[in-house]
Lab assay of single mutants.
Amino acid sequence: DEETLERIAKELKEKGWTLIVNGKLITDAREALKWLLEEEERR
Score class of each variant (00 low, 15 high):
Ala29Glu: 06
Val21Glu: 03
Ile26Glu: 03
Leu5Gln: 02
Arg42Phe: 06
Asn22Cys: 14
Thr27Val: 07
Ile20Arg: 00
Glu40Val: 15
Ile8Phe: 09
Glu14Cys: 09
Asn22Leu: 12
Arg43Asn: 10
Lys10Leu: 13
Gly23Phe: 14
Glu38Met: 13
Leu19Thr: 04
Lys34Glu: 10
Ala9Trp: 15
Thr18Arg: 05
Glu6Phe: 10
Ile8Ser: 00
Thr27Gln: 09
Ile20Met: 05
Val21Gln: 03
Leu36Lys: 00
Arg43His: 09
Glu14Lys: 06
Leu19Gly: 03
Glu31Asn: 07
Glu3Trp: 14
Ile26Met: 02
Lys34Pro: 00
Lys10Tyr: 07
Leu12Cys: 15
Glu6Val: 08
Glu41His: 12
Lys13Thr: 13
Glu38Leu: 10
Leu12Met: 08
Lys13Ala: 14
Leu25Val: 13
Glu11Leu: 15
Leu19Val: 05
Trp17Ile: 05
Asn22Thr: 02
Glu38Ser: 07
Trp17Arg: 01
Arg7Pro: 01
Gly16Asp: 02
Lys13Gln: 14
Arg42Asn: 06
Leu19Pro: 01
Arg7Met: 13
Arg7Thr: 07
Ala9Met: 15
Glu3Tyr: 13
Gly16Arg: 04
Gly16Ala: 08
Ala32Phe: 14
Leu25Ile: 08
Thr4Cys: 15
Glu3Leu: 15
Gly16Gln: 07
Trp35Asp: 01
Glu41Gly: 12
Trp35Gly: 01
Glu40Leu: 14
Glu3Thr: 11
Lys10Gly: 04
Lys13Cys: 15
Arg30Asp: 06
Glu31Gly: 03
Leu5Arg: 03
Arg43Tyr: 07
Gly23Gln: 02
Asn22Asp: 11
Arg7His: 05
Lys15Leu: 12
Thr4Asn: 05
Ala32Pro: 00
Arg42Thr: 08
Gly23Asp: 07
Val21Arg: 02
Thr27Pro: 01
Thr27Gly: 02
Lys34Thr: 05
Glu41Phe: 11
Thr27Asp: 07
Ala32Cys: 13
Asp1Leu: 15
Glu39Gly: 04
Asp1Ala: 08
Leu25His: 07
Leu33Ala: 14
Thr18Val: 15
Glu38Val: 04
Asp28Thr: 06
Arg7Asn: 08
Glu6Trp: 08
Glu2His: 13
Trp17Asp: 00
Leu37Ile: 08
Glu11His: 08
Glu39Phe: 14
Glu38Ile: 08
Ala29Ser: 04
Lys34Phe: 09
Glu39Trp: 13
Ile20Asn: 04
Arg43Lys: 07
Leu12Gly: 01
Arg42Pro: 05
Leu19Glu: 02
Ile20Cys: 14
Thr4Trp: 15
Glu31Lys: 04
Glu6Asp: 12
Ile8Val: 10
Thr18Tyr: 08
Lys34Asp: 04
Ala9Phe: 15
Arg42Trp: 10
Arg7Ser: 03
Glu39Gln: 11
Leu36Met: 07
Trp17Glu: 01
Leu12Asp: 01
Leu25Met: 05
Ile26Gly: 01
Glu14Ser: 05
Thr18Gln: 11
Glu38Gln: 09
Glu14Asp: 09
Gly16Val: 08
Leu37Gln: 07
Leu36Pro: 00
Ile8Pro: 01
Leu25Gln: 10
Thr27Arg: 08
Glu41Tyr: 12
Lys24Val: 08
Arg42His: 07
Arg7Glu: 07
Asp28Gly: 03
Glu11Phe: 15
Lys15Asp: 03
Glu6Leu: 12
Thr4Pro: 03
Lys15Ser: 04
Ala29Asp: 02
Trp35Thr: 01
Trp35Lys: 01
Asp1Arg: 11
Leu36Trp: 08
Lys10His: 09
Leu33Arg: 01
Glu40Tyr: 14
Ile8Cys: 15
Glu11Lys: 13
Leu36Thr: 00
Thr4Gln: 09
Glu6Asn: 13
Glu11Gly: 03
Arg43Val: 07
Leu12Thr: 01
Lys13Val: 15
Glu38Gly: 06
Asp28Cys: 06
Asp28Ile: 07
Glu3Ile: 14
Leu19Phe: 06
Asn22His: 04
Arg42Met: 08
Ala9Gly: 04
Trp17Lys: 02
Thr18Asp: 05
Thr4Met: 14
Lys10Ile: 08
Glu3Met: 13
Ile8Met: 06
Ala9Val: 14
Asp1Tyr: 15
Gly23Pro: 01
Leu19Met: 05
Asp1Asn: 10
Val21Met: 06
Lys24Trp: 13
Glu2Leu: 14
Glu6Ala: 10
Thr18Cys: 15
Trp17Ser: 01
Gly23Asn: 05
Ile26Leu: 06
Glu40Phe: 14
Thr4Gly: 04
Ile20Val: 07
Lys13Leu: 15
Glu14Met: 05
Arg7Leu: 11
Gly16Ser: 04
Ala32Tyr: 11
Trp17Tyr: 12
Ala29Leu: 14
Leu36Phe: 08
Lys24Leu: 10
Leu5His: 01
Glu3Gln: 09
Glu6Thr: 06
Ala29Tyr: 13
Leu5Trp: 13
Glu39Lys: 08
Glu3Asn: 12
Arg7Val: 04
Trp17Asn: 02
Leu25Arg: 02
Glu39Met: 13
Arg42Gln: 05
Glu11Gln: 08
Glu14His: 03
Ala32His: 02
Lys24Gly: 06
Leu5Pro: 00
Ala29Val: 14
Gly16Pro: 02
Gly16Thr: 09
Thr27Leu: 07
Ala29Gly: 01
Leu19Asn: 00
Lys10Ser: 11
Leu37Ala: 04
Glu38Thr: 04
Lys10Glu: 08
Lys24Arg: 06
Leu25Ala: 03
Ile26Pro: 04
Ile20Trp: 07
Glu41Val: 12
Thr27Met: 05
Lys13Gly: 09
Glu11Ser: 06
Leu25Asn: 04
Glu6Met: 14
Glu39Ala: 07
Glu2Cys: 15
Asp1Ser: 03
Lys34Arg: 12
Glu11Met: 15
Gly23Lys: 00
Ala32Thr: 03
Glu6Ser: 04
Leu25Glu: 11
Glu11Asp: 07
Thr27Ile: 07
Glu40Ser: 10
Leu5Phe: 06
Ala32Lys: 02
Lys15Val: 03
Arg42Glu: 03
Ala32Ser: 01
Trp17Phe: 09
Glu14Leu: 07
Arg30Leu: 13
Asp28Arg: 06
Lys34Gly: 05
Glu40Asn: 13
Leu36Cys: 14
Glu14Asn: 08
